[in-house]
Design a binder for these strands. Structure first.
Lengths: 117, 117
DNA sequence: TAGTGTGTCAACTAATCACTAAACGACTAA
DNA sequence: TTAGTCGTTTAGTGATTAGTTGACACACTA
């Protein structure tokens, strides 16, 4: 889980320490230099590119979309989906603006029924 | 309306010619150089940044989200919305993947009812 | 006390993005 | 016939993104 208003860097540093993982070791796992990871973890550098964020999510078993959001990004497969029906999906998303997570989840459920059944 | 599989550049060139607008004149309206617009229109350069695409949509009265989609982009306010509820909205969008425009429009309508009460 | 592991600092960099300036040939109108 | 307009060509540029390298100080331990 992501704590309060934890920034991306602080969040992954906490995860890394909770998993007793060294900086160099983790850097190797996600394919960046230790120096870079250090700066990212202290939020001195902006969060890395999408593929690196995905690698991090995989290491810790985090939800990819949630971690990408914390990194200020949106998964590229989602923007691809929007570009296929820009008018309708833009309207849908703007309506979802201001709704609660529970309400949106209910809407997603309704969508699944519409699609399957 | 966007024709068949018209690229961004070809599309805005057609719009411009239909409106009897000169290249230099339009370039001035949207705040770029004529050179740049010429290259964009022939799809030699990638579509411009979001603000320029918005300016173009305004000139021709096009739907902004539709034109942004043709430019390979998604409005930044939409990605902001997604980042506020990444888990739920990602699920919703992936479910919408493969649905028809009509089905998605119906879902958006349902959402509006949910929201308003 | 030499060696190893920890994170950090300063200084760069390669690639991509989003453009611009100036000159050019073809055409038109005066 | 020269001045004005059209879109195009060549040759760049400044800003941003997404990182890297190598040296460094500190703590532990054999």
């Amino acid at each position: 889980m992501i704590k309060g208003n934890e920034l991306f860097g602080a969040h992954i540093r906490r995860l890394r320490e909770e998993h007793d993982l060294g900086l160099r070791e983790m850097a190797k796992m996600i394919g960046v230099s230790p120096t870079y990871l250090s700066k990212v973890e202290r939020d001195e550098f902006a969060p890395p590119a999408e593929d690196k964020v995905r690698a991090i999510a995989e290491v810790f078993g985090s939800d990819i979309d949630e971690l990408l959001a914390l990194a200020g990004r949106v998964s590229s497969d989602l923007t691809d989906i929007i570009r296929q029906h820009p008018v309708e999906l833009s309207a849908l998303l703007r309506t979802a603006q201001g709704m609660s997570s529970v309400e949106i989840a209910a809407l997603a459920k309704k969508a699944r029924r519409t699609k399957d059944g």
